[in-house]
Design a protein around this nucleic acid. Structure first.
Length: 422
RNA sequence: GGAGAGGUGGCUGAGUGGCUGAAAGCGCUCCCCUGCUAAGGGAGUUUAUAUGGAAACAUGUAACGAGGGUUCGAAUCCCUCCCUCUCCGCCA
């Protein structure tokens, strides 16, 4: 959510931002400003009447205290009409406020000036590449490798739950666990505090990070208890400090959190969902930062660098994309995607997404810090995957396979797995 | 899940219809006094929002778990929900 005052002072910028993000109809911006005008004038009017009504109530109280019952009764009679009027205005105000709020929630975050303007994924900018994508023909896709060894059981996953909920078996289960530990350890070394978070959140939390109203179809819902299964640890972790005012000495706050993630992924099909490419449940280690506004873009770069360093340590070639306006999403102001090279599939797979939300999530969450003794300011929030597991597993299986079919263990994981081959 | 008690400011805790946005204490900030450590005195110390103002700030409104109701007036009375504690039940 953007600050209404910011929208008022930067109407064109906000409209332009929405257009660049692919929204054709930006009339909502003008509408929210009009609605806000209306709301403010009604607030003023209502407050004046309430004030009058409070004054009278006090007079009555004073008169009653002195035992002047008749005089009090006279004023009570007068208040009838006033009361009605206030009640009516309050109802109108409530409606206006809800309309204003829901409009505000539908206005996208403004892209940072450094973000390339573009319509689709084709306009993303290659920000960096690392390593040489392996083009060797003999390399097999991971689904063939895991099938040969019985390392992932998709069929039984279907039986037990449904498509997209596989079982990992033996060495691949072990590989995932090793990666999770490795990723968390590296984050801890970089100063991130380790957190274990709830896997289900309530509606306020889902709204806080922007999953609703924009993307509610991505989440699994537990209707009986009104919970949402988390689509990413970003949701519980960023909401950890919702409705708080943090002391400025505490910033930046940095968390690392491993969780499973659940996504409905409605409408996906074909090669995108083959093997481990896209699942309804997957594991991810997530980084979240809560920072002072003036540092958020430096923090974004260090977040990206941290995620990149993991792929480098694993020896997996990747490229970093600076997402263009049309491909970056509603809530972000700047976003990098890290794509690892899948040598068995000869394609790039997204394994991380590092974003700066500026104060967009913070404002929804009322997450502030004490800037000075008497003033507060919204923080900036960021998050990034470090990293999403199944696709890293795929890339490792494909990149570390040998022509005889055996799969080597990456050097940095040997301490966790205790042998040279899976 | 059942029964009972309770949810007040950074913390402890008073407050059962008007003089309470909230006593008192603690903590914290600033000032004064005091030649070191100790002690004393004074002032300040929730948030959001509207209006005015360049700003400092002023004024109003709202908020005592959340939402609704009663009343001229609600932290205080009533209803619903959420949460915490104690006992019982269940249980990794």
């Amino acid at each position: 959510m953007l600050d209404i005052n910011f929208i008022r002072e930067n109407k064109e910028l906000v409209e332009k931002g929405m257009q660049n993000k692919g929204e054709k109809d930006v009339s909502i911006v003008a509408q929210v400003l009009a609605k806000d005008e209306e709301w403010r004038s009604l607030v003023h009017k209502t407050d004046l009447l309430r004030s009058e009504s409070n004054t009278k109530a006090k007079e009555i109280g004073a008169l009653m205290g002195q035992g002047k019952k008749e005089e009090a009764q006279a004023i009570i009679k007068e208040t009838g009409a006033l009361k009605e009027e206030v009640k009516e205005l309050e109802e109108q105000l409530k409606v206006l406020q809800e309309e204003r709020e829901s409009m505000l929630l539908r206005i996208a975050n403004v892209p940072h000036p450094s973000v390339p303007v573009g319509a689709s994924e084709n306009d993303n900018e290659v920000f960096a590449t690392w390593g040489e994508p392996d083009q060797a023909e003999w390399r097999k896709p991971h689904w063939e490798i895991v099938e040969r060894y019985g390392w992932v059981d998709f069929e039984r996953g279907v039986k037990v739950t449904g498509a997209g909920f596989p079982f990992y078996i033996g060495p691949v289960a072990q590989l995932q666990r090793a990666l999770i530990n490795y990723f968390i350890n590296e984050a801890a070394k970089a100063g991130y505090i380790e957190l274990q978070a709830p896997y289900f959140v309530n509606e306020d939390s889902a709204r806080g990070t922007g999953q609703i109203p924009d993307k509610e179809d991505m989440m699994y819902v537990v209707p009986r208890d009104e919970f949402f299964a988390i689509p990413t640890a970003e949701v519980p972790v960023t909401n950890f400090h919702r409705d708080e005012i943090l002391p400025k000495e505490d910033l930046p706050v940095k968390y690392v959190c491993y969780t499973p993630c659940w996504r409905r992924e409605a409408g996906s099909y074909g090669k995108d969902v083959r093997g481990l490419n896209r699942l309804h449940q997957f594991d991810k280690v997530e980084l979240v930062k809560i920072v002072k506004p003036e540092t958020s873009y430096e923090e974004l770069e260090s977040l990206r660098e941290h995620s990149e360093s993991l792929l480098q340590a694993l020896g997996l070639p990747y490229r970093t994309l600076l997402m263009c306006t049309g491909d970056m999403g509603f809530t972000q102001s700047k976003k990098y995607d890290l794509e690892v090279w899948s040598p068995g599939q000869k394609r790039w797979l997204e394994v991380s997404s590092c974003s700066n939300f500026e104060s967009f999530q913070a404002r929804r969450m009322q997450l502030r810090y004490r800037k000075e003794e008497k003033s507060t300011e919204m923080v900036h929030t960021l998050n990034g995957s470090a990293l999403a597991l199944p696709r890293v597993v795929s890339a490792i299986l494909e990149a570390y396979q040998e022509e005889n079919g055996k799969v080597r263990v990456p050097e940095v994981l040997k301490g966790f797995i205790g042998r040279d081959y899976l």
